[in-house]
Nucleic acid binder design. Structure first.
Lengths: 107, 107
DNA sequence: TTTTCAAAACAAGAAAATTTGATTTGTACT
DNA sequence: AGTACAAATCAAATTTTCTTGTTTTGAAAA
């Protein structure tokens, strides 16, 4: 790769994987304007607690969300920097593209 | 969602899924500066033809690559517009984020 | 029309991700 | 200590994705 790479390719790939699920996307959408605790997300999405926990773990592990524990509750919020990292990866990748004319395979 | 959505959420999710695999990413990288036919990609990546075909299908179905048939060969190239669509989705999503102070769950 | 080669499609098996229900952990309250 | 609730963890079942080897399709050349 010829362009800046702060995050490893593996980190980027895991990030895109985290974004490739509708439940995880819904969670990120909910967190766009405010932090929420698990029980709130669970009630809004109306899914089992362990299922949500699984997806929250994916989002946590890929750095897309932050967590904050307060008493019994755990609050989740968006981690802007990781989102920006993925955005920049795509942006740099796209800018590195050179559209060349058709060619011939030498086989 | 409060912002522009040209592509359906499902299309976006499938797009991110396509980007969440190292072989598919390597293919996209190879296509950054030129189109290549399947046999060329296969030799560069050194993977079985059917395996490559599977991943190329994913890239095709999600609109990330274009194909051009010439004689016996099929040339693959990057579809810029789909890449831009994913980039814009991330960009708009990120810009829609409002970082608010901590709050309290009303449970 | 037979042969050859590129590449898609297919079917079966393997691996990975997701779902489900149950259990555990941690914190606060009595 | 005992109870209650939030949320993580775990194990088993299910589903989806990926891999492998084989077969089929299509285009060109003999």
């Amino acid at each position: 790769m010829t362009f800046t790479q702060i995050h490893s390719q593996e980190t980027i790939i895991l990030g895109f994987h985290a974004l490739s699920d509708s439940i995880r996307m819904e969670v990120l959408n909910l967190l766009r304007t405010r932090e929420l605790c698990v029980c709130e997300i669970k009630e809004i999405l109306n899914i089992p607690q362990s299922k949500l926990s699984f997806h929250l773990k994916t989002l946590r592990e890929t750095g897309l969300v932050n967590t904050r524990q307060q008493g019994k509750w755990t609050y989740y919020s968006i981690n802007l920097s990781q989102l920006v990292a993925l955005e920049q990866y795509l942006s740099e990748f796209r800018r590195s593209i050179v559209l060349l004319p058709t060619r011939i395979c030498e086989h």
